[in-house]
Amino acid sequence: MFLEQSDLQAIWLTLRLASMVTGILLLLGTPIAWWLARSRSWFKGPIGAVVALPLVLPPSVLGFYMLLAMGPNGPVGWLTKAVGLGNLPFTFWGLVLGSVFYSFPFMVQPLQNAFEAVGDRPLEVAATLGASRLDAFFSIVLPLSRRGFFTASILTFAHTVGEFGVVLMIGGNIPGATRVASVQIYDHVEALEYASAHRMAAVMLVFSFLVLLALYAWRSDTQKRG
């Protein structure tokens, strides 16, 4: 076998995590990006800054504070316990929550740019034609910003696959639950099992390249057809 069983398990887990995070962020990031693109409130600046914050802190530092926040003595941990979810660190859902926060700017910022590029004009026209704001969003803004959605989803997915510091910190390296591909490769390297590390890194690299290639080919195709 080219890859060990544990390597395959880690890759599968990574794909599940990245898809889950991308899905959640599409639902969560879209309204926030929309608001950031349209709002003239003074509140826009601070919210935009908060969204961009995960870009600033080193991942392992961010992971450390998430561990404290999600732990039994932290505010998030207190909340999850109060609603009966228990403690999130060292669980798959803890990783999902951490990654959602960590990848937030990668979803929101491309979407915000796309929404801003749509401008006021199409919405004004839609309003004159009697479309409700929700209707205008779904029939005008969404199709017009599909490339933004595409870029945002790719970035979020890729960023989650490549994530390391945060998952290492709040994950606890549990096979099948929190040991993702990047951690597995790191384990191989630290154990001086370079051959295994190379094999797994090669598989990840080829896989990512092929996925990105397919998506970009699809994108330039839809672009040509308009």
Partner: peptide, 20 residues
């Protein structure tokens, strides 16, 4: 019930923060 730190410092953080 086991959670693994990548090294002994991370293991210590797991315990000192009360997560384990």
């Amino acid at each position: 019930k086991m959670v693994q730190g990548e090294n002994i410092s991370q293991t210590f953080q797991f315990v000192s923060s009360g997560n384990a």
